[in-house]
Structures are given as structure tokens and as C-alpha cells.
Amino acid sequence: MAGAAAAGGSVRSDTYASVRNWLLLPSWAGLAIFVLAPVAMMLVYSFLTKEFRGGVIWEFTLAAYDQFFFDRGLFGDEPAKIEWTYILIFWRSIWQAGLATLLALLIGFPTAYFIATRPAHTRTVWVFLITIPYWVNLLIRTVSMKFLLRDQGPLNDFLLWTGLIDDPVRIINTNAAVQIGLFYSYLPFMVLPIYASVERYNFALSEAAADLYADKWTTLRRIVIPSVRPGIVAGCILVFVPSLGAFLAPDLLGGARNFMIGSLIEEQFKGNAGNWPFGAAASMILLTLVLIILVFLARQQARAEREAAP
């Protein structure tokens, strides 16, 4: 996404420099009021006191973060130990999102490469085919997946029919179902940026490698993949970040049992828990985590580009 905004070799002009601030004002105002201010407000709420049965009291405290990181026993009077519960939920989310990203990369990379090496006129049709599912409502796609994976659903029917299995496989309400759901939700996000990178890749490099007797898979590993790395990184971010905070896939496919971050946060506002400061604190921690990952990758990318430039 940042890559799209900073695409090189594009036209930049100062035709409208004199009215620039007026042109930018609506977006500044809109986003500052309805995105920045809410996030700031959320930060404030994460330091407030939880009100009994929902809501907040305007007294500042670190209780929400304390609850997140420390375990003080059932009655809150034992010496503090590290609280693993929420760290584990975050870890599970990272793990699930990571596996989904890996799966998407394994299928997405060959697909993107294959499409990018088609003749120009068929290429657009392939891209079109890959994009369509992305335009379809995420909820509907998740529901469709739920239907497909059911114990007595079409997938199990098919597997039984082929004789690969004798009894229906339990997929729904497992971690695997969540991974499949996440992978499926964001697969087009993986294919498109990689495709854009491979399309720009100079195949003369592969030919040169072949001339030097490199075998094809070595060429792929040593030449092609490093060259299209920005596309791969962008694809991984676009799959990983939304997967991390996903709510639909864990809720509909995972049976709402193995909590992921999204469900944990949702429960604080809409469910039984009713602990707003804690929900705000968990959201802040998630946001910080994502921003750290993005900044880290952006810096790596920048370094790689500096090194690539002569």
C-alpha cells in the first residue's frame, strides 16, 4: 500500500500548489476527527477504571495493562506472576495468521508467477478471475466456507465419495478451519502484489542465469525471488495484518472457542465481559504490534532498495 503511494517515475507537478491546503483540508479533517482522535480516545480509555457491569469511571489506572500482563490469583491478592492467558491468545493469533500467510504464499506465488508469464491479452483475464472473489462480501465467503467444511458438508461428501476417507473428517470448529478460512479470505491479497512485481521482473536475468548453467529452481531461488521480494513482502503484510485481527473466521469457523485477538476484544464490548478499559488496552497492544511489524518491514525494504541501487 505504501508502495503504491510512492511509485517511482510518476508525474508530480505544482499546478495547484497555491490551493493545496484547501484541497487537503477535507481529508485531514475527516481522518483526524474520525480516525486519529478515536485512536487517541481509545488510548485514554485504556488507562481508565472499569465500571462494574460495563462502562468506565474517569480515574486513571494501569489496571487494564496489569490484567493483561500479570496474574494475581483468583482473588487478586497473590504475588504477581506473568499472566500467560492473553499472551497466549496473541501468540495463537500470530501463529494462525502466520500459517494462513504461509499457505497463501505457497499457493499464491506460483499462481502470480504463472499469470505474469502469460501473454499480455490472456493475463488480464487471469487477473480478473483472481480478483472477482476479493470483491465478494467477506462474510458471504466465510459463510460459504463454513457450509463447505461442515461434518456433513460437500467437502466431506466428496472425500467420502472418492474413498480417500471412511468417516467424515472433523474440520469445522478446529484451528485448521480458522487457518483455511483466513487463507481463503485474503488469498487474492497475496497474488496481486506478487503478480505486479513479477510482471516488472526482467527475464533477461533468468536467461543470463541459464546461460551460466544455473538450473531453473536455483534461478528461481537465487534470482527471481530476491528480485520480486517487495511484492512478496507486500503480499504477506496484506494477508497477515487483517488475519491477525480477524473476527469472522474464528467466530464462524472456529466455534468461538479458541479465542483469537479479535474475539477477545469483541467480548469486552459486546459480550459477557463488559470490560472497556481492558478491551481498549488489548486493542492498543494489537495496534502497537502491527505498527512495529510494518515499521520493521518498511525499514528492511528501504535498506534492500539502498543496497540494490548502485
Binding site: 478515536p38 481509545m42 480509555y45 487483517p242 479479535g262 464490548f269 486493542s283
Partner: peptide, 12 residues
């Protein structure tokens, strides 16, 4: 992440 935007907007 979308869930964070959602929480922030609700609080706001």
C-alpha cells in the same frame, strides 16, 4: 486492524 478501528470508533 479493522477491529481496532471499530473499538476506537465506538469509544469515540
Amino acid at each position: 486492524p479493522e477491529i481496532v478501528t471499530a473499538v476506537a470508533t465506538l469509544i469515540f
